[in-house]
Amino acid sequence: MQFDPMSPIWLQVMTALKTDIAVGKRLPGEKLPGGRDLALAFSINPNTAARVYQELEKEGLCETRRGMGTYVTGDADRIAAVRWEMARQAAERFLSTMDTLGVSRQEAARLILKEDV
């Protein structure tokens, strides 16, 4: 994975994992790699990897069972909510770019629906 070194790396790895969970690449209740393995898999610092799990836990997307490791949450509603939240954020980013370009909402909608403008 190529990182954008200007923004926190834990955030980028977290987003990657969140996406995996949201789209079901990683299933509810599935065991996630240990912190060290995550660090090796992404070639990131182990402290950064630990931070990723801390933040995922804060968002209720995974849970750490003592001595057993970290698991994807079994809460399907929570996952659905996170997926929707990610989509909403992406849409906001898109709209903000459209605003900058002076593209109206109607024009933007036609772009999304792939109708010829």
Binding site: P5, M6, S7, P8, I9, W10, T48, R51
Partner: peptide, 14 residues
């Protein structure tokens, strides 16, 4: 480094 990226928005190279 992560603090620096969060607070200053710069990479180590920057």
């Amino acid at each position: 480094l992560e603090e620096m990226r969060t607070e200053m928005g710069v990479s180590m190279a920057d």
